[in-house]
Design a protein around this nucleic acid. Structure first.
Length: 564
RNA sequence: UGCCCGAUGGUGUAACGGUAGCACGACAGAUUCUGGUUCUGUUUGUUGGGGUUCGAAUCCCUAUCGGGCAACCA
């Protein structure tokens, strides 16, 4: 077995099954597939599936096909084909790109072959044309406890069925007039086996197949045969397809497909807290403008996370930690946040930015002068080196770092208190200036020149260290502070998920940034010290007007204490 | 009341008949020029009842609870 990077020792019931199949010599090799329908953007749930399918291929020297399951032209679009392709490549880049099939597959490329299989089914008396109308369906299908009724078309001869099926293809009938059904068992306790529809008429142009067809195969008929055509060994999908498995097996067992044939395995889908994961609901968020688009940084889409500043490796890591089982639980978002913080703590350069500025004047600092101070780029990575930051008489500090009447555990600035300005000097607050309404407008402080660099020669200590920027040198930037999109851990469990939309999921502020941040290229991620991890917004940032996204905040134990 | 699937700390997951472990969270402490990071410690768990066995989270039966299935969606 190939030691796939980061995947060593990964075990779950599907991987166990793959190993058992290999040991038994059931398949010559492992071929998996990731089969999205191009009717929406990929989200975190898809990421889990991608990590599983590509991961298993990677660990077993196999391959994984990207295949679009595009059998429903009315819902699908090339916009989604393009976004999905981009997202998959981004997510596996540098990890499993070597096992991605060279070509991209489309189920619609198999339509002719699928048609041939359907003809064979008809010839063997295993499929028939049905003219039941939609309103008659419920009556004929029956309910789980009671058998259904046979369609009048069920007893027609193969010759007649074949002739009708050809005329369906030729476009002689209107949408909904006729269907092709598999002849299985109208009394089965599994409704999917009660003569399921395998072809329906849709006079509709297809985004990939063009206008060649007015007859489209259904998922259950298409998916298993597409797997078979591509030589898939393990067809991995989510739990809701479990009841479809007997149909998957029926189709492959009743047609002369190559052996060994693929088998379906189901796992439970990802269900993170404070998110909705259904494509329908995500589409609604986009269409009703609750978010700016599929790639809004608050969306749980791959595109959203990418724009927000998440790394592919953090998402993969998260998927790995979540595990693979058949138990339907909820996954705490803190697991995802931990994954991205853990990575960025090691890799992101530190910078200073003040997001809610309060002016500070150092009254004993010479007017009109400034100096450069040395700051460490990343305490977790010595190789990241140092930079210099300008210091002057007028500064900005965070409004939350000053309290006029501080409680005992508040370690920051207050009247008469001394704190350290990170990498600079100790300062002491001498007086507070206010406007007519009593709002604090300015702090008058003094600094101790002996503490340059942040240490006092007399060995005295300060309780707190705060960040700052020089007012004279600061760069203004729009900073977008994202929070969870929903206020409830399980928005879908409440009556209407839109009712628990978080009104504060986006706050936009104008921050004061240290000058080195002025032209940070998109794709770079930095830590604003004591605040969180940030990245320039790939779409909106510009050299003269930087725009930053907050990827995730730092853990904030003061916020916890302050709450009490 | 039909069929299928599932159930291990707050959450997710491991233990494949032999000491219930890991991650995240929470709490407490230490370290710290980020109330970050790091380190240490604490807390909490095998759904109930029967059985098989020297021994059961694991195998069997049963109850309970939860989820899924009745688109010409995937």
């Amino acid at each position: 077995m190939n030691e796939a990077e980061g995947n060593e020792g990964l075990r779950d019931f599907i991987r166990d099954r793959v190993q058992a199949d290999l040991a038994a010599g059931k398949y010559p090799g492992v071929v998996t597939r990731f089969p999205p329908e191009p009717n929406g953007y990929l989200h975190l749930g898809h990421a889990k599936s991608i990590c599983l399918n590509f991961g298993i291929a990677l660990e077993n020297d196999g391959i994984c096909n990207l295949r679009f399951d595009d059998t429903n032209p009315v819902k699908e679009d090339t916009e989604y084909v393009d976004s999905i392709t981009e997202d998959v490549k981004w997510l596996i880049d540098g990890w499993a790109d070597s096992v991605l099939s060279e070509k991209t597959f489309f189920a619609s490329d198999y339509f002719e072959q699928l048609y041939g299989y359907a003809v064979q089914l008809i010839q063997h008396g295993k499929a028939y044309v049905c003219e039941l109308q939609p309103d008659e369906w419920e009556e004929y299908r029956g309910v789980p406890e009671k058998p259904g009724k046979e369609s009048p078309g069920r007893s027609r001869s193969p010759e007649e069925n074949l002739a009708l099926f050809e005329r369906m293809r030729a476009g002689e009938f209107a949408d909904g007039d006729k269907t092709l059904r598999a002849k299985i068992d109208m009394a089965s306790p599994n409704l999917h086996l009660r003569d399921p529809v395998i072809y329906r008429i849709r006079h509709e142009e297809h985004h990939h197949a063009g206008d060649q067809w007015c007859l489209y195969p259904m998922y259950d008929f298409t998916h298993c045969l597409s797997d078979s055509i591509e030589g898939i060994s393990h067809s991995i999908c989510t739990l809701e397809f479990e009841v479809h498995r007997p149909l998957y097996d029926w189709v492959l067992d009743n047609l002369p497909v190559p052996q060994p044939r693929p088998h379906q395995h189901e796992f439970s889908r990802l269900n993170p807290t404070y998110m909705v994961m259904s494509k329908r609901k995500l589409l609604q968020l986009v269409e009703d403008n609750h978010v700016s688009g599929w790639d809004d940084p608050r969306m749980p889409t791959i595109a959203g996370y990418r724009r927000r500043g998440f790394t592919a490796s953090a998402i993969r890591n998260f998927c790995q930690r979540v595990g693979v089982t058949k138990y339907k639980g909820v996954t705490d978002v803190s697991l995802l946040e931990n994954a991205i913080r853990e990575e960025l703590n090691k890799t992101a350069a530190r910078r200073c930015a003040v997001l809610d500025p309060l002016e500070v004047v150092i009254e004993n600092y010479p007017e009109g002068e400034s100096e450069e101070l040395e700051a460490v780029n990343n305490p977790e990575d010595e190789a990241a080196g140092k930079r210099s930051v300008p210091f002057g008489r007028r500064l900005f500090i965070e409004r939350a770092d000053f309290m006029e009447d501080p409680p005992k555990k508040f370690f920051r600035l207050g009247p008469g208190r001394e704190v350290r300005l990170r990498y600079a000097y100790f300062i002491t607050c001498q007086s507070v200036e206010k406007d007519a309404e009593g709002n604090i407008t300015r702090l008058i402080c003094t600094y101790d020149p002996e503490t340059r660099g942040g240490h006092a020669p007399d060995g005295r200590k300060v309780k707190g260290t705060i960040h700052w920027v020089s007012a004279e040198h600061a760069v203004d930037a729009e900073v977008r502070l994202y929070d969870r999109l929903f206020t409830e851990p399980e928005p879908e469990a409440t009556g209407d998920f839109l009712e628990c939309l978080n009104a504060d999921s986006l706050k936009v502020v104008t921050g004061k940034l240290e000058p080195s941040l002025a032209e940070l290229p998109a794709g770079e991620r930095v830590q604003f010290e004591r605040l969180g991890y940030f990245t320039p917004d790939a779409k909106d940032t510009a050299p003269e007007k930087p725009v930053f996204n907050r990827i995730v905040g730092l853990r904030d134990s003061w916020a916890k204490i302050a709450k009490k």
